[in-house]
Design a binder for these strands. Sequence first.
RNA 1: GGAGAGGUGGCAGAGUGGUCGAAUGCGUCCGACUUGAAAUCGGAUGUACCGAAAGGUACCGUGGGUUCGAAUCCCACCCUCUCCGCCA
Length: 425
Amino acid sequence: MLDLKLLRENPDLVTQKLAQRGGNYDIQPILDLDQQRRDLEQQRSALQARGNEVGKLVGQKMKSGSKPDDSEIVALKEEGNQVKAQLADLEPREKEIKAQIEALVLQLPNLPSDTTPIGKDETENVEVRRWGDEYKPSHAVLPHYEIAEKLGILTTDRATKIAQTRFVALLGAGAALERALIQFMLDQHIAAGYLEVLPPFLINSTSLTATGQLPKFAEESFKCAEDDLWLAPTAEVPVTNLYRDEIIDGSQLPIHHCAYTPCFRREAGSYGRDTRGLIRLHQFNKVELVKLVRPETSEEEHQKLVASAESILQALKLPYRTIELCTGDIGFGAAKCYDLEVWLPSGNTYREISSCSNFGDFQARRGNIRFKESGQKGTQFVHTLNGSGLAVGRTMAAVLENYQQPDGSIQVPEVLQPYLKRTIL
RNA sequence: GGAGAGGUGGCAGAGUGGUCGAAUGCGUCCGACUUGAAAUCGGAUGUACCGAAAGGUACCGUGGGUUCGAAUCCCACCCUCUCCGCCA
């Protein structure tokens, strides 16, 4: 959520920054409502002040012996009733306007960082670096879903019987490989100082609003019919919300978490794309990194977060490139974002395997996550960051392709061998 | 699912209609005493909004209601705990 004060004091800057995302954002209606709100608030609180005064006077007079039907008391009560009547008019109006402002502001995306490259869409993203040699063996590399079915470690047909399309079931070595990847990623991040969290996978609306999935992107998540609960679309939501409505002691910062969760996404509007394999599923596993940090450190923490995600790909020896998203392509709540794209030889392309975003104070405002430096007065919003470290299914796909041997077997990446206790799948 | 208890400031815990943003204790911060520390003593110590400021307003789980006046009374909801039932 953007700072209303910033909108008020610097509307041109806000408008200009929002325009960098593309699309039209008119903040004038919000500013008008805000002015109305402040006028109403002043009227209201002046009335309340008089009402409080009247109440006190009655109390004092009663205590010093006045009777309820003394003319003085009757007059005060009458005034009290008038105040009440006026408030009954003002209060609902103020409330209504506040709700309107809130609804509008929640729809506004974050301002891109000054360091985010300006561009209209994904074609203007910037490649920052590449790592590893693209695997281009002389033999053909089967797409991961074909080799996996062939090895009998993946079934999509049977999984759709259980659920529907875009679900898979892993068998034998496939299930073991998925588990090994999760375990390896967590171990690596824990060793780097991230504290593991295993959060709830069902999440209430307030939490989804805080991190920005609601109200705009309701159609992207699965909702439980009988309850105000949604299936987690990413661990970002529960882990960030661990601290919602809290004032964190400054000495606790920075907070670094890693979390494995399944993630559930409706993938509305992507019907024709990636219909096979592990790339785009309604349910997939992910290890997520989440940070809550002081504002002045967030840029540095962001770079380190990206490095943490990259370290997994490097340890697995999977070639990748790092892309800095431009203003037209960054997500709703992000101020700045890097995507990691892993090499998939079957398609001769790179595919997104991680997205690492700095949200600035956008989520912290929505979730009211603040910190207080001891000795200093006042509170500040933390900055929140998160990134995949990594999407497990896509990592499995990358392993199945980048480690595919001429005979169709899969070599187990060295770092996973202790987990899988085998060298070949 | 049934029965009961309860939600007050960083924590503990008073407060059942009037000047209560809220006693007291602990904690924390500042100061005094001390070579230093402990102990002791004195003071301070919530958040947010509006306002140039002075100051004002709101907040005792949430939302309504009664009243001149609500932490306190009434209604609804949410959450927590205990016991019973069911259950991995």
